[in-house]
Amino acid sequence: MDLKGCNLDTFPPLGARLHTSVTSINLEDNALTVITKKKLAGLSSLTYLTLWNNKIKSIEDNSFSHLIALTGLDIGFNQLTSISKEMFSGLRNLNHLTLWNNKIKSIEDGSFSHLVALTGLDIGSNQLTSISKGMFSGIHNLTYLSLWNIRIKSVEDNLFSHLIALKKLNLGDNLLTSISKRMFFGLRNLTYLTLLNNKIKSIEDYSLSHLIALTGLDIGFNQLTSISKEMFSGLRKLNHLTLWNNNIKSIEDDSFSHLIALTELNLGSNQFTSIIKGMFYGLPNLTLLNIINNKIKSIEADSFIHLIALTELDLTGNPLTEIGAKAFAASWYPHGIKLILDQNFLCCSRVLYNELSFVNGNCTFEGNLEIFNDSFQTKCPTPCKPEST
C-alpha cells in the first residue's frame, strides 16, 4: 500500500480486511508525529513498513508488538531523541532496522535484544556521542552495523566482542582519535571496516590482528603521520586498503609484508617525499598502487622490485626529479604495467632511458610498459630517442 506524500498527520484507518491482508505500507514523506500500539494493531501479515521522512518524535512502547511478520522497518529522517527498551518488543522476525538521521541522543541498554533475527542495523547520523556494550546485546545474528556520524570520540575495549556474526562495520565520519588493541576484539567474521573521516592519529600495533576475515579497510581522511611494521599484522585476507588523505610522512620497512592478499593500496594525498626500497616489500598480489599527490621527489632503485603482480602505478601530482636505476624495470612485469606520471618535473630526455631504452612522454614503449604523461613537460616523439650527450 503506497501512501507516500499524502500529507497524513495520523496513521490512516485501513479497515478489517486490509488489516489482515496488507503486506507492505509506504508512509514516506508525510507528517506523522506519534506512533501508537493501537494504530498498528491487527497488521499480522505486514512484512515491510517505512515511515521515512515524517516528523515522528515518539513511539509508544510495544507499538510494533503485533507485527509478528515484519522483516523490514524504516524510521529514518524523523525526530526521535531516544530509544527505549520496549520500543521494538515483539519484532522477532525483523531483519533490517533503519534509524538513520534522527536526533537520537540515548539508546537504553537492551533496546534491540528482542530483535533476535536482526541482520542489519543503521543508526547513523544521530547524536549519541557514546555507545555501550549493552546497547547491542542480544542481536547475535547482526551482519551489518552503521554507526556513521554519531559524534563518538571513543569506543571502549571489547564493545563489539559479542557481535560474532558481524561482517560490515561503518564507523566513518566520527571523532575517533585512536585505535586501541582490543577495540575490535571478537570480530572474527568482519569483512569490511570503514574508519573514514575521523581524527585518528594513532593505531596501536596489532589492533587489527583479530580481524582475520577482513578484506576491505578504509582509514582515509584521518591524521596518521606514520605506518609501523605491526600496524596491519594479521590481516592476511585483506584485498583493499585505503590510507588516502592522511598526513603520512614515513612507512617503516616491511609494514605491508603481512598483507599477502592485498590487491589495491591507496596512499594518495599524503606527505611522502621519497620512495625507498623496503617500503612495499611483501605484496606479491598487489595490482594497483596509488601514490598520487604526495611530495615525492625521488624514487630509489629497486623500490618496486617485489611487486610482481602490479598492473597500474599512479604517481600523478608529485614533484619527481629523480628516478633510480631499474626503478621500473620492464623485465619484472611480463604481463604489462600502466605507469602514470602526470604533473611532474621529470626531464623528458633522461628519465628511464638507461634501464628501458625509452623515456617518458606520450609514447608506448618496449617491455610491455605503457607510460602516460600529460604533464606540462616537454613531449617526447614516437619512437622516443635519447638526446645526444
Rank of each mutant, 00 (worst) to 15 (best):
L3V: 04
C6L: 14
C6G: 07
C6T: 12
N7D: 15
T10W: 06
L18W: 12
H19W: 13
V22L: 07
D29L: 09
D29Y: 12
A31S: 14
L40S: 09
A41Y: 12
L46C: 10
L49R: 00
L51R: 04
W52I: 03
S58R: 12
E60Q: 14
E60H: 11
S63C: 05
H66C: 11
H66S: 14
I68H: 12
G72L: 05
I75G: 00
G76D: 02
F77T: 08
Q79A: 11
S82W: 10
S84T: 14
E86A: 06
M87I: 02
G90P: 03
N93A: 04
L94Y: 01
L97K: 07
L97P: 01
N101I: 05
N101A: 10
K103Y: 13
S106A: 07
D109N: 13
G110F: 12
A117K: 07
I123R: 01
G124A: 06
Q127R: 15
T129L: 11
S130G: 03
K133G: 09
G138Q: 04
H140K: 04
I152D: 01
V155K: 01
D157M: 07
L159T: 14
L163K: 02
L166N: 00
K167P: 00
L176E: 03
I179E: 00
K181T: 05
R182M: 09
M183D: 00
F185C: 02
F185P: 00
R188E: 13
R188N: 10
R188K: 11
T194V: 03
N198A: 00
K199C: 06
I200T: 09
S202C: 11
E204I: 06
D205V: 06
S207C: 09
H210I: 00
T215V: 11
D218A: 08
I219S: 06
Q223P: 08
T225N: 13
S228M: 05
M231R: 03
H240E: 10
L241C: 04
L243Y: 08
W244V: 08
N246M: 07
N246V: 08
I248Y: 04
K249C: 12
S250W: 07
I251L: 08
S257N: 01
H258F: 08
N266M: 04
S269W: 11
S274M: 10
G278A: 05
Y281H: 15
G282D: 09
L289R: 00
L289M: 05
I291N: 02
I291Y: 04
I292R: 13
E300W: 10
A301W: 02
H306W: 05
L307M: 01
L307P: 01
L310I: 08
L310D: 00
T311R: 12
E312W: 01
L313F: 08
T316G: 06
G317I: 06
G324D: 06
K326A: 09
A327P: 02
A329F: 15
Y333A: 00
P334L: 07
G336M: 13
K338P: 03
L339M: 06
R350Y: 15
V351E: 12
Y353I: 10
L356V: 14
C363K: 06
F365S: 12
I371V: 15
F372V: 15
F376L: 14
T378R: 09
